[in-house]
Simulated assay, not measured.
Amino acid sequence: MNGRTQIFQDIISAILRGEANGVLKSINAGLQMAMSADEILEEAMIPATIQTLDKYQGADFYIPDVINASHAIEAGLFALKPYTKKSLQKRKKIVIGTVEGDIHDIGKNLVALSLGYAGFEVVDLGVNVSPAEFVRAVEQHRPEILAMSALLTTTMGEMARVIKALEKHHLRKSVRVLVGGGPVTKEFAESIGADAYGSSAREAISIAQSLVRRCSDRERDYAC
């Protein structure tokens, strides 16, 4: 294992152990070896985030472990921020929120956090977001992607209302729509005219990256 690979592995291992100081030490070592911030993000920070999501999703776990891992990731991102200003200006933007009538936010927060770690600029509208609020956010922020979450079967229909509101305001062609949440399915997403469905935070990252890559294949008003 060469020195660069060792540093990437050290960063990943420190994040999985929730050791922020270890992350910072390895990042500093990498920067001293003339590694770029983007390289460290791509080869260590993002893979570690995905592994963290896998480790703490859908199973019993000790909550402080999740918090420590999250702090380790945040510490690493903060340390790299001064070296990534140029790339941050070019980040693709995502607006995300839980639909009206639904106040569940744990899943939405995890997705928002994951997308942010993966390099997207995330505008989090919170919970109980009305179609009008989603429309205003799209008009204001001009995101590449609009992501919606619903954790109740009784609120899933709000996603369709949002899409119709986007169409009414002539915004549908300007943004890709990604939906997810406990009761949401791929078939439901297709039935309401969404562009994609994500079943987990990890999947949301790859889907969002794919949607951004494909956005140039579709006529858009201002995104991309």
Rank of each mutant, 00 (worst) to 15 (best):
P143K: 01
P64V: 07
R17K: 03
I103G: 10
L211V: 07
G116R: 04
L77A: 08
R4E: 11
L152Q: 01
Y62R: 03
T155V: 00
V162Q: 00
E43Q: 15
K81M: 15
M33E: 13
S26G: 14
L88Q: 14
M45Y: 12
I63F: 15
A132G: 01
S206N: 08
G107L: 10
I7F: 03
D54C: 13
N2F: 13
G182K: 08
V184D: 00
K164R: 07
T52F: 15
L41H: 05
G180I: 00
I11M: 05
G18N: 04
P47S: 09
C224V: 09
P131Y: 00
R17D: 09
L88T: 04
L53C: 09
I50K: 15
A69L: 00
E219M: 11
A14T: 05
Y83M: 06
Q6K: 12
A37C: 13
P82R: 15
A208P: 10
A165Y: 01
T84Q: 11
E74D: 14
G182Y: 04
E43A: 14
V212Q: 04
F134E: 02
A194S: 14
H170T: 12
S199R: 06
A69G: 03
A204T: 07
Q209S: 12
A194D: 08
V175K: 06
N28A: 13
L178F: 06
I145W: 08
A20Y: 06
I106V: 07
I67C: 09
G193T: 08
G76W: 05
D124R: 00
N109T: 05
Q9G: 03
F61A: 05
V184I: 08
K168Y: 10
I27D: 07
F134N: 05
L53N: 05
R218P: 07
A118K: 03
G193W: 01
V23A: 02
R4C: 13
T84F: 11
E203D: 03
I11N: 01
T98Q: 07
C215F: 10
V175M: 05
L77N: 12
V127K: 09
F61L: 00
V111A: 08
L16R: 05
K108E: 10
Y117A: 11
G119I: 02
G180T: 01
A204H: 06
A20Q: 12
K92Y: 07
E19F: 08
P47I: 06
I96Q: 04
G181P: 02
A59H: 14
A147E: 02
I205C: 00
R213D: 15
I106N: 07
I94W: 04
V135W: 00
E42A: 03
L41P: 04
V138M: 01
Y222N: 10
S36N: 11
A132S: 09
R213G: 14
F188Q: 04
I67A: 12
G157Q: 13
N109S: 10
P47D: 08
A132W: 02
I94F: 04
M35V: 02
L115R: 00
E144D: 14
A223V: 13
T52E: 08
K85F: 14
M1C: 13
S70Y: 14
D124F: 00
